[in-house]
């Protein structure tokens, strides 16, 4: 499907620049051109598609739906799935949290949404397809959604409401289920397109530098680090590899666009996919900056429990990935 991009990259590097096949620089440059073109194309397609979905299911509608309906346990899965289609901005995580609490949505369900949203989103999916192929992407999306749901159920069972900050407890005490059905703006598809388009352009512009730097680093590693280099240190039988990679990654933060190209090269050079994905999930999903933001609504103890449960679930899915793939 992407052969034509490879032809363009080959032509550019070997014909136009006249570099020799097998040269480190040539290989790295070829990889860079091929990967950026392919990934930007895929990103465009996925971001645009998700933009359409999101235009019809805005966050207020999601909240209203979760708040209004009795879902008999399915609400965790649904919240998690909505987390996928809702674009995530870490600066919105606190207002989102309050909005959910105010609508009478259980804490665990809110967590399910908050966990999945940064982990599985339009940018992550677009990059994943480009770097790892469709099959791995589907497994990643499913495990991301399950991870959010399961963590949400566990966090709900722990009865954490007492660890919210006082003003949030007040919001919780006055919580009301939304009664009215959400009135979505009744716009035609044609009218929605320009707004969706503007968002797509903005998102792509925003992630472009990360993708370019990520792929450039990836390209360098690709050209200069020998195959199987990491296998010595992190092979599948090393039981500690997954937890160490995960815990190292928790305080770090990068969005999916920066970290994924690097992860792909790590995998190509011999790090097991499950270990690499656990690392990536921990980088994208949990971070110190996020913990700082959440301090406004949660006590330190609650943040610690939240991070602990999610870390544990990430480690488990890392093992699962390693045994499945």
């Amino acid at each position: 499907m992407f052969d034509w991009i490879q032809h363009i990259a080959d032509w550019f590097v070997y014909e136009l620049l006249g570099l020799r096949v097998g040269q480190h620089l040539a290989e790295a440059l070829n990889f860079f051109i091929y990967d950026t073109t392919k990934i930007l194309l895929l990103l465009f397609v996925v971001v645009f598609f998700m933009g359409i979905v999101n235009s019809y299911f805005p966050i207020d509608k999601v909240k209203n739906y979760l708040s209004r309906n009795k879902l008999y346990g399915l609400e965790y899965l649904i919240a998690s799935l909505f987390g996928v289609v809702t674009p995530f901005c870490s600066c919105s995580s606190v207002p989102l949290f309050i909005g959910f609490v105010r609508g009478g949505i259980p804490l665990g369900v809110t967590f399910a949404f908050l966990i999945t949203s940064p982990l599985v989103n339009e940018v992550a999916i677009g990059l994943f397809v480009g770097l790892f192929g469709l099959k791995t992407t589907i497994i990643y999306v499913i495990s991301g959604v399950l991870l959010g749901s399961v963590s949400g159920v566990i966090l709900q069972k722990l009865k954490l409401e007492v660890y919210l900050t006082p003003w949030v407890k007040e919001v919780l005490a006055n919580a009301q289920r939304d009664q009215e059905v959400f009135q979505a703006e009744n716009q035609t598809f044609k009218k929605r397109i320009p707004i969706i388009w503007a968002e797509v352009v903005k998102i792509l512009k925003g992630v472009l530098p990360y993708v370019l730097v990520g792929i450039a680093i990836g390209g360098l590693m690709h050209g200069y680090i020998p195959e199987g280099f990491f296998e010595k240190y992190m092979d599948k039988d090393n039981l500690f590899a997954v937890p160490i990679a995960t815990i190292l990654a928790v305080p770090m933060y990068s969005n999916a666009s920066g970290i994924l190209p690097v992860v792909q090269v790590l995998v190509a050079k011999g790090i097991p996919l499950g270990t690499a994905i656990a690392f990536m999930m921990a980088v994208v999903g949990l971070s110190l900056p996020e913990a700082m933001l959440l301090k406004k609504v949660m006590s330190l103890k609650l943040i610690a429990i939240f991070f602990g449960v999610v870390t544990l679930c990430i480690i488990l899915s890392g093992y699962l990935f390693n045994s499945l793939l």
Binding site: K63, P95, G99, R102, W167
Partner: peptide, 29 residues
């Protein structure tokens, strides 16, 4: 944050004109 939450928005930034929330969660043209 407390002030922001009075407007019942869940995504920032939001544009409020004469106390009506007109745009939320994105930068308008």
């Amino acid at each position: 944050l407390m002030e922001i939450m009075k407007f019942d928005v869940m995504t920032t930034p939001a544009l409020v004109i004469n106390d009506v929330v007109s745009v939320k969660g994105r930068v308008p043209s």
